[in-house]
């Protein structure tokens, strides 16, 4: 929460996570919109939820299972029809690791404590 009671949103970080290239004016616009949404949802925190079980789903059911029996699969041609790039039997994608990127150390914390 910021001083004005609004959530502080790091729109640049969110955009990176979502692989979106935002222009500066889009950043400002979405920043405001997302903060509005969060402020609205934040009304829920005004409710007293003592003794209320956390809700993880809106589905009114449990134990929806499937038997372990194989079905027909797609043919490879069908499976790859929309692929932007392919090579032989494979989907082809650009290289994964780029030079000069920061080491991946963002998981936070500095101990062996389990995640």
């Amino acid at each position: 929460m910021g001083a004005d009671g609004r959530s502080q949103v790091d729109i640049g970080h969110l955009a990176t996570l979502a692989r979106l290239n935002l222009k500066p004016e889009e950043c400002a616009k979405f920043q405001e919109q997302i903060e509005d949404i969060l402020a609205y949802v934040d009304k829920l925190s005004q409710l007293n939820v003592d003794g209320v079980e956390p809700m993880t789903t809106a589905l009114p059911m449990i134990n929806v299972f499937r038997d372990d029996t194989p079905h027909e699969t797609l043919s490879r041609d069908e499976a790859m029809r929309n692929a932007p790039d392919k090579e032989g039997a494979f989907f082809k994608v650009p290289r994964i690791i780029q030079d000069g990127e920061a080491p991946d150390d963002g998981e936070g914390g500095d101990s062996n404590a389990s995640k």
């Binding site: 990176t16 994964i96 780029q98 920061a102 991946d104 963002g106 998981e107 936070g108």
Partner: peptide, 8 residues
């Protein structure tokens, strides 16, 4: 790992 995968 200098990974394209963003910070976790």
């Amino acid at each position: 790992m200098r990974s394209k995968e963003e910070a976790h």
